[in-house]
């Protein structure tokens, strides 16, 4: 934010932006120590994340199908061309994006509502919170199976209730809707928890002041609460978007990717583990990695989401 205001004499001036000064001797020693102290952790990080990433990239540049191990050779970006010009990949990509966007939007709305309820309840607060968190506590695969049974034609109670005549999980649009439903059901509590932490950041006095200033409940929510908790909302959205983009278990259980409901993770799994095509599979996982990194980058740079842990926007 650029400020052209001249502060009045005597008023405390906002601190100058850090100047690139020559680093003093002591400072330098301190920095060196800091690096040394971080080194062990950094090494572990490199070993457990850097190495697999590098190895994936290396694999993605080769023709490497375990069924035909003799044909292994370095082929540069050929795999990328294969994948990016493939209809299945793009279908999976759009399905994943659709699921991500829709489920995150719904989760945000419902999560906010749930957070407000949990924040406001005065009686049996602990009980309400515990109950709300149950879906998040259930193993996804288990929950996905119960959704699958519920939606199976003839035997499932939800299928019976909603559309007894058709097998919803075998049609594309309804199947996607059910996947989104399962995803939303599972993660709304998590969203609500993150948002509740944000709600706690909104001082009670601020809301009182807003009502005195003439704001209705809705205006208090939109004009005071949301802007003040914006950092928390962005962090919650970032977490959820990254998570949702890697959706796997719900789809695996509910449709196994049939009727073109595969996500990018699904299709990667099919190629890598089922198809044993290490080259193509690795290419896909590298592409997922790039997409996720891009999402994070957009959130942090464009929306100004404070990276979790850094504390310079959240503070007032």
């Amino acid at each position: 934010m650029s400020q052209t205001v001249v502060p009045p004499p005597g008023s405390t001036q906002p601190a100058d932006p850090p100047r690139r000064q020559k680093v003093s001797e002591g400072k330098r020693a301190e920095r060196k120590l800091a690096w040394l102290l971080c080194a062990p952790a950094a090494l572990v990080m490199v070993a457990v994340t850097g190495y697999p990433i590098a190895y994936s990239i290396w694999l993605s540049l080769q023709r490497y199908d375990l069924r035909f191990p003799d044909q292994r050779e370095f082929i540069g970006f050929d795999n990328y061309i294969t994948v990016l010009s493939n209809g299945y990949w793009w279908n999976a990509f759009w399905v994943t994006s659709l699921i991500t966007v829709i489920s995150v939007v719904i989760e945000l709305v419902l999560g906010m509502a749930l957070a407000l309820i949990m924040h406001r309840t005065l009686v049996a607060r602990g009980l309400v919170r515990t109950v709300a968190l149950i879906p998040y506590g259930i193993v996804t695969v288990v929950a996905a199976f119960s959704w699958r049974y519920a939606w199976t034609q003839d035997t499932g109670y939800l299928a019976e209730l909603v559309a007894p005549e058709s097998a919803l999980l075998t049609e594309r649009a309804p199947a996607l809707a059910i996947i989104i439903l399962a995803e939303v059901w599972k993660t709304v509590p998590f969203m609500a928890l993150l948002l509740m932490a944000g709600l706690a950041l909104v001082p009670e006095d601020l809301l009182k002041a807003a009502s005195m200033d003439g704001a209705s409940a809705w205006q208090r929510f939109t004009k005071v609460m949301l802007p003040v908790m914006k950092p928390a909302i962005l962090v919650a959205l970032l977490f959820r978007t990254l998570d949702a983009f890697r959706i796997f278990d719900n789809i695996f259980v509910l449709t196994a990717g049939a009727q073109e409901t595969s996500s990018v993770s699904m299709i990667t799994y099919s190629n890598l583990i089922r198809g044993l095509n290490l080259g193509i599979g690795s290419t896909m996982s590298v592409l997922i990695f790039v997409a996720v990194a891009l999402i994070a980058f957009i959130f942090v740079k464009v929306f100004g989401t404070a990276a979790p842990g850094s504390d310079d926007r959240g503070r007032r």
Binding site: P203, L206, K208, A209, S211, M212, G214, K230, R316
Partner: peptide, 20 residues
């Protein structure tokens, strides 16, 4: 009557200024 319909202004100890 709700606070907004009383046409009264209030100054708080914490000032309660909108940070954004």
């Amino acid at each position: 009557r709700a606070p907004k319909d009383r046409d009264i202004a209030m100054v708080f100890q914490s000032y309660a200024l909108y940070p954004h």
